[in-house]
Design a protein around this nucleic acid. Structure first.
Lengths: 252, 252
DNA sequence: AAAAAAACGAACGCAAACGAACATTCGTTC
DNA sequence: GAACGAATGTTCGTTTGCGTTCGTTTTTTT
């Protein structure tokens, strides 16, 4: 139970930013710090925030995926990639996003976009974007994979087929030297392929580690991809291929 | 139960803006603040708004609902109802569960069942049951409603249609004196109806408060229900009806 | 390790918001 | 046209929120 307007907004704030400060909030709401302290006490007592000196943070633990995700994201260069990718997506666009921590990073960067329609088979993305009030979220149905919150299976594919997306933001497990996108999971591959078919603009987000990995299944060739976002320069061979494929490469 | 045009507009307003103020609404509708307070009370009582000093806000979103829900669930006699209902469901069964705190309580009681296949349009249930490793969870796809973690819409219905369930566990917003099951949300009604069609055994979980409430839409008649779980004795009239319907009533 | 600064929580008082009870208006029913 | 019920307005005692003050705890600086 929140007892005033501020508290619900503070919660929202905290979830977006990961933390809030007493002073910052006091200034923002033009009230005394004491009032803010009272608010934070209430929110902390009900377990929705964790009080720290000078402010409050979102509690860690299973309950809050956003915060954990944010931490995981920040430690890598994924955020930089995500920022670039989010810049390409305009307000009001329809977007598909699949399973993967890279795509989740993009979701975090989409929190301030407006009026998006996002279709995803990734439960974490649904959670992250639920903090964005103007965003319509459509979950693809199917079998829930508890290891990563992914939704997979034939039903998922069927559902994705019913849409036509302005953009799709895809992650993958690995990228082969010849440019093929690879993955471990056959069911997820089917979902990704379907999304590619249904999208006007296909974007892949992959940090440099993906270029060193291997995976058994092919999702598609880089030629099917419109923009590849990554954090290091590609090998000469791959760069040349991309030119041939007319695939735009964005390096952070 | 939206008893006047204002209330539905206020809801719309609140969902758009995130909040509404008593003063603002009073001025806008040119009525006294007391009248607005009455409206907000009604909306808050049915859980569609959360009352705060000076106005109301939309209930907190899905992200933290799990945590809050767990607390809310335990406080009522819902647990007792849920225990009874869970006893009826054997290991290995296929089960559909819809939106509602009562069904979530049942989900908690299913954590020790084995090899269930659970289809749900309730994100919280998916999360709760993800702790049960032997349980296969299938999420119905569709539009995510951030206020309660429900998944609704035509796509959801289509997906539910593809299954045939041993049992379905349904909650509702209210139960009419003549035995009709009622709900606020038209889209959710469609999902529930579909689930009933596709189920061999239909079970409804409803605490006694539901018998005092009203809601505008009919899901089905009690005659379509095989077992009704509740925590207090029914009115004589309703009990007699149930006998006529061949609906088994289980009271905790 | 001591001192200074910042943050904290408890207590008090005022003003705003609140809800219960009662009064009024208006449309329906008999 | 009298009786009724639902919706709204009115009044009033009660509760709640917020600023202020002050003594305590925590953090930073010296």
């Amino acid at each position: 139970m929140v007892s005033n307007f501020r508290q619900s907004e503070i919660l929202e704030f905290a979830r977006k930013e990961g933390k809030v400060t007493v002073d910052g909030l006091a200034e923002h709401y033009n009230v005394t710090v004491q009032t803010i302290r009272r608010d934070l006490s209430v929110l902390a007592e009900s377990g929705r925030l964790e009080r720290v000196h000078g402010g409050a943070v979102v509690p860690s633990g299973v309950v809050n995926i956003i915060y954990e995700e944010r931490r995981r994201t920040n430690e890598a260069g994924k955020k930089a990639i995500a920022v670039k990718c989010a810049q390409v997506i305009p307000d009001g666009a329809s977007v598909f996003m699949n399973i993967g921590t890279s795509t989740e990073a993009v979701a975090l960067e989409l929190l301030d976009h407006e009026n998006l329609l996002v279709v995803t088979n990734n439960l974490n993305i649904a959670y992250i974007l639920s903090a964005n009030k103007t965003c319509e979220i459509i979950l693809a149905g199917g079998i829930l994979r508890r290891t990563d919150g992914g939704i997979v299976g034939g039903l998922t594919v069927e559902m994705v087929k019913q849409f036509k997306f302005d953009h799709s933001v895809l992650g993958c497990s690995a990228i082969d030297v010849d440019g093929d996108l690879l993955d471990f999971d056959g069911q997820e591959v089917m979902v990704s392929r379907t999304a590619i078919q249904q999208s006007r603009n296909v974007m892949v987000v992959a940090d440099h580690i993906k270029f060193k990995r291997k995976a058994p299944l092919t999702i598609c060739a880089l030629g099917d991809v419109d923009i590849l976002f990554t954090d290091r320069a590609l090998s000469d061979e791959l760069a040349a291929n991309c030119e041939g494929f007319k695939t735009l490469v964005v390096t952070t």
